[in-house]
Nucleic acid binder design. Structure first.
Lengths: 195, 195
DNA sequence: GAAATTATTCTGACCGGTCAATTAATCTGA
DNA sequence: TCAGATTAATTGACCGGTCAGAATAATTTC
C-alpha cells in the first residue's frame, strides 16, 4: 500500500471518528464521513470495501491508540501505586476526549452483540487491557501489597470498574463530574486490590 | 386509558423488545415491531406517538421490571451475604434472558449519549439500583462486616462491576461462561466490600 | 349507523453502492 | 527534457431499495 493511500485511509478514519461521535453508528452515512473528510462521496468506497469496513478499521484504530497511550503511561512509572494512578489518569484523560471515545465505543459494543468482526477487535482490546493490569498486579505483588491473586479475574474486575464508572459518568452528561468519577474509580480499584 | 388500550400497548412493547433484541435499536422498523406483535403496520403509530415513543416506553418497561425483580430477590433474604448473593443471582438470571436484556440495554445506553429522554429513564434505573445496593450495605454494616462506607460510591462500584462483567460476558458470545462470570462478579464485589 | 379501531396504500425522503466521466499523477522513450 | 501515454484518484449523478409517517379504506363495536 502506497504512502498516499495510507494517508487517505487515515484521513477517512479520522473523519469517520468525528462523524460517528456526532451522529452515532447507525445514523452516520458515507456522505457524512465524506463531508467530514472534505472529499466526495465516492472516496470512502474507493479506499474501503464498504461502510462496515470503514467502521471496523475505525474501531481497530481507536482501541489500539487508547491501548498504546495507556501502556505508555503505565510503563513510565515504577511503583505499584504510581502505575495504577497513571493508568487511571490515562483512562480518564479529560471530558472531551472521553466523551468522544466512549460514545463511539459504546456504539461499537452495542453493534458487537450482533457483529462477530467487532467482537473480535474488542477481544483484542480486552486482551491488551488485561496485559496492562497484569503489569500493575505483578508490581503490586513484588512490592508486597498482596499475594496469589488471580490476574485474569482482577483484569476483568479492573476493566469492569473502568468501563462501568466511565459509562455512569457519561450518563450524567456533566463534564464537571469527570474528576470525581475518576477519583472514585481509582479509590474503588485500590480498595479492591489492597484490602 | 382503557384496559384494552393498556393491553395493546403492552403487547406492542413486548413485541418491540424481541424485535430490538433481534435486529438492534436503529435497524428495527415499525413494520418489524408490528410483525412481531401480529398486527398491521399502522397499529404502533396508533398507540404511540412515533417510533421513539414506542422505544422509550420499552426502556422504561424493561428497566422497571428488572429493578422489581432484583429488589424482590434481595428483600426476601435476611443476611448480608444472602442478600448480596440473591442480588447477583437475580442479575445473572440465565444466558438467554441476560443476552436479550443486555443487548437491548446496551443499544439504549449507546443511544442515551445523544438522547436526553433515554438518559433520564436510565438515571431512574441507576437510582433504583443504588437503593438496592444501599439495603445490602446497611445490612452489612448492621452485621459488622464493615463500617462508615460511602454508600453512593459503593453503589456506583457495584453497578460498575455488574454492568462491566455482564458486558464482558456478552462479548465472549459463550453461554457456557455465564456461570463463571457470575461467580467472578460476586467474588469481586464481596472482596471489594469485605476486606 | 356513527365512532372507534385496524388494515392498506401512498408519499417524500434518504441511503449504500455503482459507475461513467473527469482530473491528477506517473511513467516512458526519444 | 518533455510530450504523449498510461495509470491512479476523484467526482457526483444515478439506481434499487427501504423507511417513517400520513392518508385512506375497511372493519368492528357499541
Amino acid at each position: 500500500m502506497s504512502q498516499k493511500t495510507e494517508l487517505r485511509r487515515k484521513q477517512i478514519i479520522k473523519a469517520a471518528y468525528q462523524a460517528v461521535a456526532d451522529k452515532g453508528y447507525e445514523t452516520v452515512t458515507l456522505q457524512d464521513i465524506a463531508n467530514y473528510a472534505d472529499v466526495s462521496k465516492g472516496v470512502p468506497n474507493y479506499y474501503f470495501q464498504n461502510k462496515e469496513d470503514v467502521l471496523a478499521h475505525l474501531l481497530e484504530e481507536i482501541t489500539e491508540r487508547i491501548y498504546q497511550k495507556e501502556k505508555t503511561a503505565v510503563v513510565n512509572e515504577t511503583s505499584f501505586q504510581d502505575m495504577l494512578q497513571a493508568y487511571i489518569e490515562a483512562v480518564f484523560i479529560n471530558p472531551r476526549e472521553n466523551k468522544k471515545f466512549f460514545k463511539v465505543y459504546l456504539d461499537f459494543l452495542a453493534q458487537a452483540t450482533r457483529n462477530e468482526r467487532y467482537r473480535e477487535i474488542n477481544a483484542l482490546f480486552y486482551q491488551n487491557c488485561s496485559s496492562i493490569s497484569k503489569m500493575i498486579l505483578v508490581r503490586g505483588e513484588s512490592e508486597g501489597h498482596f499475594h496469589n491473586r488471580n490476574h485474569d479475574d482482577d483484569g476483568k474486575t479492573i476493566r469492569s470498574m473502568i468501563d462501568g464508572y466511565m459509562i455512569q459518568w457519561l450518563m450524567t452528561g456533566d463534564d464537571k463530574k469527570h474528576e470525581t468519577y475518576k477519583e472514585s474509580c481509582l479509590k474503588a480499584i485500590t480498595n479492591y486490590l489492597t484490602s
